[in-house]
Amino acid sequence: MTLTKEQTAMKDMYTRTNSELLGIILGVSEDSLNVRGLSDIMDHPQAILGIGEKKAEKLYAIREVTKRLMEQPAQRMTSIKSPEDAYEYAKAKLQYEDREHFAVIVLDVKHHILAMPIISIGSLTASVVHPREVFREILKYPAVAFIMVHNHPSGDPAPSSNDIEITKVLVNAGKLMDIPALDHIIIGRGKYNSLKNMGMID
């Protein structure tokens, strides 16, 4: 079967290195770019030799377009049936953030998704979360349950002692409010942990 010019061009892109692809996007020689991992480039482009303010702005725009494309399947998801569903819904919004973002997926009686408000934005290693702020957001909706989600900018989704402590606090608060916390999903780069699956939530 003969490929069209468009198909040939797309196939050619699959074989290109990261340096070559960035060179094409930015209109520069790949030799002028000191390229490291793609995630580092997209998070901190001006730290790369050969990328100035205008080229960095173009990369930020590409990152945002890519993020929105990744969100589209998640936006079509209407209910949460498993930890993996929660991860798939939240990952496009959170996994590439360079600071910790703590959010909750608010669910109705059939575990349909009502909203996913961001509660707190913290540092590279931690976010500060107060139960009153969490429930202030949850109570804006006819919520029956919620799932905690947050990202680890390091890419490692292993729970910290602070993650475990805030999970206990919010699980107990949920019991008092009769709006149970079903899980706490920690999002890394391409992987996640479910504190329920780890036995930390009943």
Rank of each mutant, 00 (worst) to 15 (best):
Arg36Cys: 01
Leu139Val: 00
Tyr60Ile: 03
Ile121Glu: 14
Pro153Gly: 05
Asn18Lys: 13
Ser82Gly: 07
Arg99Gly: 02
His112Phe: 10
Lys191Asn: 14
Gly23Trp: 06
Ser79Glu: 15
His112Glu: 14
Val109Met: 12
Ile201Phe: 01
Pro180Phe: 02
Ala86Asp: 10
Met116Trp: 05
Ser82Val: 05
Ile179Phe: 03
Pro131His: 12
Ile119Ala: 04
Met200Phe: 12
Val129Gln: 11
Gly174Met: 08
Leu22Gln: 09
Lys11Ile: 05
Ala90Arg: 08
Ile179Asn: 07
Leu69Lys: 08
Gln72Pro: 01
Ile164Pro: 00
Leu94Tyr: 00
Tyr87Phe: 11
Ala181Asn: 13
Lys168Pro: 03
Ala115Pro: 04
Ile164Ala: 08
Gln7Trp: 01
Glu97Asn: 14
Val109Tyr: 09
Ala47Gly: 09
His130Met: 14
Gly190His: 07
Ile147Arg: 10
Ser160Arg: 13
Ile201Asp: 08
Asp108Ile: 04
Asn193Asp: 10
Met198Tyr: 05
His112Cys: 10
Asp43Phe: 00
Val28Pro: 01
Ile41Tyr: 00
Ser123Gly: 06
Asp178His: 12
Gly188Cys: 08
Asp40Pro: 00
Gln46Thr: 11
Asp108His: 07
Glu53Met: 05
Asn34Asp: 15
Met198Trp: 01
Thr167Asn: 13
Gly23Ile: 05
Ser39Pro: 02
Lys55Gly: 01
Gln46Asn: 11
Met198Leu: 14
Pro153Tyr: 00
Val109Trp: 10
Ile105Trp: 05
Val144Asn: 13
Thr167Asp: 11
Lys91Ser: 07
Met148Leu: 14
Ala74Trp: 03
Glu97Pro: 01
Asn162Glu: 15
His112Asn: 15
Val134Asn: 09
Val129Glu: 11
Phe146Cys: 04
Asp98Cys: 04
Arg132Gln: 14
Asp108Lys: 10
Gly174Val: 06
Thr4Pro: 05
Ile185Cys: 00
Val35Trp: 02
Gln75Met: 11
Ile80Thr: 05
Leu195Val: 06
Lys5Pro: 03
Lys168His: 12
Ala115Thr: 09
Ser160Asn: 10
Asp12Glu: 14
Gly199Ser: 09
Glu100Lys: 10
Thr4Gln: 10
Phe102Met: 09
Arg136Gly: 08
Ser154Tyr: 01
His101Arg: 12
Gln46Pro: 01
Ala47Thr: 10
Ser194Leu: 05
Leu21Thr: 09
Leu195Thr: 09
Leu139Arg: 15
Glu64Arg: 11
Tyr192Ile: 05
Asp85Phe: 02
Ile48Val: 14
Ala181Cys: 15
Ile25Met: 11
Ile80Lys: 08
Arg16Lys: 13
Met177Lys: 14
Ile80Ala: 04
His184Gly: 03
Glu71Lys: 13
Lys191Gln: 15
Val129Trp: 08
Ala173Lys: 13
Asn18Thr: 11
Ile48Asn: 02
Ala158Gly: 01
Val35Asp: 06
Asp163Phe: 02
Asn162His: 12
Asp202Phe: 04
Leu59Thr: 00
Ile48His: 02
Leu107Tyr: 06
Lys81Gly: 09
Leu33Lys: 07
Ile185Glu: 06
Leu59Ser: 01
Met200Leu: 15
Leu26Asn: 05
Thr17Met: 05
Leu107Asp: 09
Arg136Val: 03
Ala158His: 13
Asn34Leu: 04
Ala145Val: 07
Tyr60Arg: 15
Pro159Lys: 12
